[in-house]
């Protein structure tokens, strides 16, 4: 369960203060599938970063599983990020010198998981992604769709409750894009909360709940009534 209430986020650009998020309140029950759409600069990425604990709001409350996160020290936020949140980026952000398996295992390494348990978990993820034969390939030896699947594997290897995807298909062709969306939806079906930020209406429309943002505010929320 994710509860945002009265979230504000200001950026200073030159002398001007830009309000990227203006009084955003949002409740996401576990297992929700949400798409966030809106024009550039409407605050969708900022919302995603706040949800992912990468960015700290100037005001408001963000409760993750009942825990107030806005006043937590950075270390604790990093730990929450590590254990409960997975990220998928438009540019994949794989570490180029590491193999697919090592990229997937990176969060486990950061969390200090023993190598034995780590290898078992990586194997499991690779199997579910159908990437076992690509385990020892480096990112530059993989296709775009394979790279994004590796990135998704890395995002879910810690079994997070929340998966945040920022334009996950932006760098992919039609075919690879739909494969990736299918994979994300399959993960959502298994219980993970999925938030997708996208420009692409065909992907946005697939979500059960669609949020439209304009000027830092939620202009339209198809699921607002159901969860209010």
């Amino acid at each position: 369960m994710i509860e945002l209430a009265g979230i504000e986020r200001d950026f200073t650009v030159g002398d001007e203060v830009v309000r990227a998020l203006d009084q955003v309140s949002l409740t996401l029950p576990d297992g929700d599938y949400v798409s966030v759409m809106g024009p550039s600069g409407s605050g969708k990425s900022t919302l995603l970063n706040v949800l992912g604990l990468l960015d700290r709001p100037n005001d408001g409350s963000y409760r993750l599983h009942g825990e107030e996160t806005t006043r937590l020290p950075e270390e604790a936020r990093a730990a929450l990020r590590r254990d409960h949140i997975g990220f998928v980026f438009q540019a994949f952000h794989l570490v180029p010198r590491l193999s697919a398996a090592d990229n997937i295992g990176l969060p486990l390494v950061l969390a200090g998981v023993e190598p034995h348990a780590r290898d078992a978990r990586i194997h499991e993820v690779l199997e579910s992604l159908d990437l076992l034969d690509r385990a020892h390939h480096r990112p530059d030896q993989l296709s775009g769709g394979q790279r994004q699947r590796v990135a998704i594997g890395r995002a879910v290897v810690m079994r997070p409750g929340l998966l945040l995807a920022d334009e996950p298909t932006g760098n992919l062709d039609q075919h690879a894009g739909s494969e990736v969306v299918a994979l994300l939806e399959q993960l959502n079906a298994s219980g993970i909360t999925l938030v997708v930020v996208t420009h692409d209406p065909t992907i946005g429309q697939r979500a059960r709940r669609r949020i439209r943002m304009v000027d830092g505010q939620i202009a339209n929320d198809s699921g607002a009534d159901a969860h209010a």
Binding site: A78, A79, D83
Partner: peptide
Amino acid sequence: VAEIGLLKALGASERQ
């Protein structure tokens, strides 16, 4: 920079 950002997104603390 991108790698550092990634590590932090994956849950690496500043200390790490």
